[in-house]
């Protein structure tokens, strides 16, 4: 298994509804993959399967050399996940939240790692404040701190910009750039190309439960990227129209 994430012929069904159809996907170590697609394309379901929070109906999923769901505990150790929700306790302070998750991941030495992470996400000055007093943007930065606390090989981000204003988005992007610069492998979903165009090293489009287009970011101008995304969405619409 050369790739850090390898997905082959993945199918996910919810009753009669098929959300992912024979999906194939591969990510090399150090890549920052933006997984683009319209609402309802199956991005969150796909990320939940990669995160071991949902089981595949069929197909093979390998993360960091471990197969899901059979070796889920090994995968979880190597994963950091950020979703729309912060996964943080409002009645605990920033450092208490990190201390709790640090104990769950057996992070050692924990206290110095908490200091490091709070510094990275720019919340060292607010470490003793309760999370429920934080703005949405600060909560999302702390959520990223929680996700990288145990130094995971792979970071999965499910539309982390949801509900953030422009300033908060810019601050979040700053943190994500620092994380990408550390050489971490990142898969981030978004339905908004503008949010990911400066961050990703590769763009994949997920429509109709499949990866329908892939484009490396290298040398691609903004116009080219927009054209690529529009073409991928258009091709999917035409295909759906033809089937109907």
């Amino acid at each position: 298994m050369g790739a850090l994430i390898e997905v082959r012929s993945l199918v996910k069904r919810f009753g009669a509804k098929i959300v992912l159809r024979q999906l194939n996907f591969s990510v090399e170590a150090g890549e920052f993959v933006a997984l683009l697609g319209p609402n309802g394309a199956g991005k969150t379901t796909f990320l939940r399967i990669l995160a071991s929070l949902a089981r595949p109906s069929m197909g093979e999923v390998w993360v960091a050399g471990f197969r899901l769901p059979q070796q889920a505990a090994n995968v979880r150790r190597r994963l950091g996940v950020v979703s729309h929700q912060p996964l943080l306790y409002g009645d605990l302070s920033a450092e208490e939240n990190l201390r709790f998750y640090g104990r769950m991941y057996a992070v050692k030495p924990l206290e110095s790692r908490i200091d490091e992470v709070l510094e990275l996400v720019g919340l060292a000055a607010r470490r003793r404040d309760l999370v429920r007093t934080f703005s949405r943007g600060m909560q999302q930065r702390l959520a990223i701190g929680r996700a990288i606390l145990h130094d995971p090989d792979v970071l999965l981000l499910d539309e982390p910009h949801t509900g953030l204003d422009q300033d908060a988005c810019d601050m979040l992007d700053g943190v994500l750039r620092q994380i990408a610069a550390q050489g971490r492998t990142v898969v981030m979903t978004s339905h908004d190309l503008a949010r990911v165009e400066d961050l990703a090293s590769r763009f994949d489009v997920l429509t109709g439960g499949r990866i329908t287009a892939t484009q490396p970011a290298h040398g691609l101008a903004r116009d080219g990227l927009l054209a690529f995304y529009r073409q991928a969405l258009e091709a999917q619409r035409s295909l759906r129209g033809a089937v109907q």
Binding site: Q85, P86, Y89
Partner: peptide
């Protein structure tokens, strides 16, 4: 409900324990 409302249940289930 406290675990579910902020998605913390997922946070717990993601831990390698």
């Amino acid at each position: 409900a406290v675990e579910k409302d902020r998605g913390c249940l997922d946070g717990l289930l993601l831990a390698p324990v």
